[in-house]
Structures are given as C-alpha cells and as structure tokens.
C-alpha cells in the first residue's frame, strides 16, 4: 500500500518538476533579448516547416469535415423543415469549435510530433551541445524560432480550416442538395457575428497554438537522448497536447459562450 502511494507521489512530483522545467524553457527562450536580424530568417524557415507543410492536411481535413457537416446538418434539419439553417449550422460549428480544435489536434499530430522528434534528435546527436560549445545558445537559435513559428501558424491554419470547411459545406448543401444559395449565405451572415464568433475562434486558436508548440518543443528538449527516448517524447507530445487542447477548449468555450 505504502509502495503504491510512494510511486504515485514520485510520479506527481516528477510531473511537477517537468512543468517547472517547461516553464523555465519558455521563459528563457522568449524573454532572453532577441536579435531580430538573425532571428527573422530562422523564424521564416520554421514557419515554412511548421505551417506551410501542414497546409495539405489542414485543407483536406477542413474540406471533408465541412462537407460532412453540410450533409449531416441537412439530413437532420430537413425533418424540421429548417434545412435553410444548414449554412449557419456549418459556419458556427466550424468557426466556434471545430476549426480551432481539430486544426490544433492535426497540428499537434503533424507539426508537434515533427518538432519533438527533430529537437530530440538534435539532442541525441549532440548538435545542441556543439552549438553551446561554439558559443551559440541553442534556446535562442533552435527553440525560440520554432516557438514563434508555432504561435504564428496555428491561428492561420485554423482560419484556413474554417474557410475551406465552409466552402465544403456550401458545396454539399448548395451544389448537391439544392439549398438555395442566397438563403445559405444570408442565414449564415445573420447568425455569425464577427466579434463574438470569428474573433473568439481565433483567440482559441492562438491559445491552442501556444500550448501545442510549447509542449512539442519542451518534450523534444527534455527527452532522454536515445532513440527510445525520442519515440516516447513524440508520443507524449501528441497525447499531452491533444488532451490540453480539449481541456482548454472546454474552459475557453465556457468563458466565451457560456452566457449566451
């Protein structure tokens, strides 16, 4: 019995210690005086790897999810004679919830795991140590650009996801199921408020971006520098960031849409 308690306590303490190290990493990478001239090309390169290369999965997933929403929405609403509301249903679901959350989950799976593996591998092959020996702070040269790139890319990907999804929904509803195009867009425009829905969705995406990128980068930096360690770290990144996104989503949704 005491043994189990001890192990539980040990696990809890080591998690806490990890969170502490993660916080330290974040602070040291971002707060340490940045040199814009050298940082900018590094950040741009990371935006390419983290954002541009994620576009395919975001666009394809967004399109399909939008189409499914249109289809399912139609089949449910048509029973109540309210199939005109499909537009607003697709748009609100995407903009408020699905775009930020699903895009963040996909981002964690594709870009997050890639970041963790890359940084972990750099640690294992002593590249981080040799950077230090040459006198370059790996936190500023390797970690910080990746953090900034993640923060910037996540909202953009979520917005693109939403737009592609709505387009997919319109494809299904208007072109295939015969809903009048005018009422599709008019109803949508009536019920989607820019500040309450779109901006809130973007705020969510920004929060998710921060959390996912931070976890991904930390797990890579903190991992045991063996191949097994890297694979464990990558798994942890995907699992923890997914859970964090979903949990954070609930909190943010309650805060933003609770009163409505």
């Amino acid at each position: 019995m005491l043994d189990i308690l001890q192990r539980l306590g040990h696990k809890a303490l080591s998690r806490l210690a990890a969170i502490g190290r993660a916080g330290q990493l974040l602070l040291q990478s971002l707060v340490a005086a940045p040199q814009p001239l050298t940082m900018l090309p590094l950040v741009l390169k990371q935006i390419y790897f983290v954002g541009v290369l994620s576009l395919v999965i975001i666009v394809v997933s967004g399109g399909f999810i939008g189409m499914v929403l249109g289809l399912q929405g139609y089949t449910i609403l048509v029973d109540y004679g309210s199939e005109q509301a499909v537009g607003q249903m697709v748009a609100l679901s995407l903009v408020r919830e699905l775009a930020p959350v699903v895009a963040a989950l996909l981002f964690a799976g594709r870009a997050g795991s890639a970041l963790t593996a890359e940084i972990g591998l750099m640690k294992a092959t002593e590249q981080l140590a040799s950077l230090e020996m040459i006198g370059v702070d790996p936190l500023r040269r390797i970690i910080a650009p990746r953090l900034w790139a993640g923060f910037i890319c996540m909202p953009i990907l979520a917005i693109i996801f939403a737009v592609v999804g709505i387009w997919g929904g319109s494809l299904v509803a208007v072109d295939w199921l015969g809903i009048y195009e005018g009422s599709f867009w008019a109803n949508m425009q009536q019920s989607v408020d820019f500040y309450d829905d779109v901006v809130n969705g973007i705020i969510k995406a920004v929060c998710f971006g921060i959390v996912v990128t931070w976890i991904a980068v930390f797990e890579g930096y903190d991992c045991i520098p063996t191949s097994e360690g890297i694979s464990q770290a990558t798994t942890r990144t995907v699992v923890y960031s997914s859970l964090a996104v979903l949990g954070l989503d609930f909190i943010l949704t309650a805060l933003m849409f609770g009163e409505l």
Binding site: A129, S130, L131
Partner: peptide, 14 residues
C-alpha cells in the same frame, strides 16, 4: 572562441 571540440558522433548540423 579559443576552444574547438570534436564530438563523438561528429554532431554536424543536419
């Protein structure tokens, strides 16, 4: 600046 180190695996920037 006055030291150079050769790591076991080379540790070239990939």
């Amino acid at each position: 600046e006055r030291m150079g180190m050769l790591f076991q695996s080379g540790a070239l920037f990939t």
